[in-house]
Structure formats: structure tokens, C-alpha cells
Computed example of a mutant assay.
Amino acid sequence: MDPKGMAAVVTGGASGLGRATAIKLIEAGAKVALFDRNVELAEKTAKEIGALAVECEVTSEESAVAAFAKARDAHGIARICINCAGLGGSRRIVDKEHKPMVLEHFRRVVEICLIGTFNTLRLAAADMSTLEPVNDEGQRGVVVNTASVAGYEGQIGQSPYASAKGGVIGLTLPAARDLASWGIRVCTIAPGIFYTPLLMGLPQDTLDMLGKQVPFPKRTGHDYEFGSLALEIVRNDYLNGETIRLDGAIRMGPR
């Protein structure tokens, strides 16, 4: 599907993988709305790249419904939805003082990474289903979600994150099958170690060490490489129901 002239939504679009993806879509001619709970950063990014900033808490039905309405009023119904909103963090199930993980931490990570993804997927798909197909095959739109290699090989301390991202991976095929009758494709990208705001606070020697764990190329991934794959998924009509690892062939160890 050619994104030129089409409306697109990118959640978590103010920074990191979302920002890079938004840039790729804009370069391809799409009209992009950046959904982010950090509205000040979203407005700054939107001004820099030529997008629309929309405040959105993806875990909230009310907030997400309002965000889609604002984007719809500005650009029309989005045929493209890229879900990049997420939350990391490392905590063990039982710490060194024998205390269990605070349940709210697990709940919050799952709410943002999994429930937030499903929330925007369902709303985007409902809008797309009302559109006329773009071709004689009946295609109406595409949703691209973001998982992680942690969804396959979660490390120590990643129980909440791995559970949530594993859920996004598990959602991909049934969502694609569910929405096939509407001509809506669903794919997921599972990135490995990427240089994003989550890693920017780490010392350079730590970043170098992480990069050396990657078989090839021996470095952390660049955000534009994620954005490039997201754009290709939009363009390639036969990509559907698939989770694509983007990780330089890394397979994560326990630590």
C-alpha cells in the first residue's frame, strides 16, 4: 500500500522508534499524527518533522478515542497505525531482601505495552473498516505493532516486559486473521538492542558491550532501521500476520 497522501497514526511518536518511523512515513508522503502522553515533547517533535501532535494515554479508552477523533478531524481516517508506545524497566520477581515485585509495576508494564497496543489497534481497525478499499483486493489499512526479542528470550528482571511483549507477539496472527475480512493487515516488529531513549543514559562502554553481543553487524540498531522496516510493511501487501525480528541475529542470554 502506497502511503502517499494517506493518514497515519504513530503511538509513542514523540521520540525513539516512533519518531523515526514517523519521519519515514512523512518522507513517503503520509500525513502523520504523533500520539504521545508527553504532549510537550510531541509538539516539539511535530514542529521539527511536520506532523500533528496529539496527547494520548494509550491505556485509557477515553484518551485514545479522543486522540483518534482529533487526528481524524485533521487528516481523515488513518489507514496506517504504527504502535510504538511502550515502557521498560528491570526488576526481579523476588529481590535480595526477599521482597516480591510490586504488583503495580507488572500491571503498569503490561497495561502500556500490551493493553495499550490492543486499545489503539482496535480503534484504528474500527475506523479503517469504514473506508473504501484502496485496491481490487479489498485492502483498507495496516497496523504495525512493536514487540521485542524479550518476548522470545526475556532476561533476568524482564518478567513484566517479556510477558507484555510476548503477548504482542501472540496477538499478531489472531488479529490478522480476525481483521482479514475487513482487508486490514497486522504485523509486528520485534527489535533487538536499539539505541533509543531507553539506552541513551547508559555509559558508552556499556553500549559498546551491548553492541558486541550482536553477531552482525556488531552494534546497537539505529532507530531509522526500525522505521524503514515499518514503512516496508506498509508498502508490501503480502506481509500479514507475521512477527519480524530486527536484531542482527542476536539471541539473548539470561543476563
Score class of each variant (00 low, 15 high):
residue 250 I to D: 09
residue 205 D to M: 00
residue 25 L to M: 07
residue 48 E to Q: 15
residue 251 R to V: 14
residue 139 Q to W: 09
residue 61 E to W: 13
residue 208 D to K: 04
residue 158 Q to Y: 03
residue 129 S to Y: 00
residue 34 L to I: 15
residue 146 T to R: 08
residue 26 I to W: 10
residue 232 E to S: 13
residue 104 E to M: 11
residue 210 L to K: 00
residue 75 H to E: 13
residue 126 A to C: 00
residue 20 A to K: 08
residue 17 L to Q: 13
residue 180 A to N: 10
residue 27 E to D: 10
residue 41 L to A: 04
residue 5 G to R: 12
residue 160 P to S: 12
residue 235 R to H: 04
residue 155 Q to A: 02
residue 72 R to G: 02
residue 30 A to N: 14
residue 237 D to K: 11
residue 252 M to W: 08
residue 237 D to E: 14
residue 173 L to H: 12
residue 224 Y to F: 15
residue 242 E to F: 04
residue 200 M to C: 04
residue 46 A to R: 12
residue 191 P to I: 03
residue 59 T to P: 10
residue 255 R to N: 09
residue 39 V to Q: 01
residue 145 N to W: 06
residue 236 N to Y: 05
residue 136 D to S: 06
residue 109 V to N: 00
residue 169 I to W: 13
residue 205 D to F: 01
residue 143 V to I: 15
residue 252 M to D: 03
residue 239 L to G: 12
residue 150 A to R: 08
residue 14 A to H: 07
residue 204 Q to G: 07
residue 183 G to N: 14
residue 56 C to W: 05
residue 34 L to P: 09
residue 129 S to K: 02
residue 102 V to P: 03
residue 153 E to Q: 13
residue 86 G to Q: 03
residue 28 A to L: 02
residue 120 T to A: 09
residue 186 V to S: 03
residue 209 M to W: 02
residue 250 I to Y: 04
residue 210 L to N: 05
residue 225 E to M: 00
residue 1 M to A: 10
residue 249 A to C: 11
residue 93 I to S: 05
residue 210 L to F: 14
residue 17 L to W: 10
residue 209 M to V: 00
residue 37 R to K: 09
residue 61 E to S: 12
residue 23 I to W: 11
residue 248 G to R: 07
residue 46 A to P: 07
residue 121 L to A: 14
residue 219 R to G: 12
residue 173 L to K: 14
residue 153 E to P: 00
residue 64 A to D: 02
residue 71 A to H: 05
residue 42 A to V: 02
residue 75 H to D: 02
residue 52 L to P: 06
residue 1 M to K: 11
residue 18 G to Q: 07
residue 165 K to H: 15
residue 194 F to S: 07
residue 176 A to R: 13
residue 17 L to F: 11
residue 53 A to M: 12
residue 51 A to R: 05
residue 239 L to M: 15
residue 176 A to D: 09
residue 229 L to C: 07
residue 41 L to Y: 01
residue 129 S to E: 05
residue 136 D to H: 13
residue 28 A to W: 01
residue 83 N to R: 13
residue 96 K to S: 10
residue 153 E to A: 02
residue 248 G to T: 08
residue 110 V to R: 03
residue 83 N to Q: 14
residue 170 G to I: 14
residue 189 I to A: 12
residue 186 V to Y: 01
residue 49 I to V: 05
residue 10 V to C: 12
residue 43 E to N: 03
residue 157 G to M: 06
residue 214 V to Q: 12
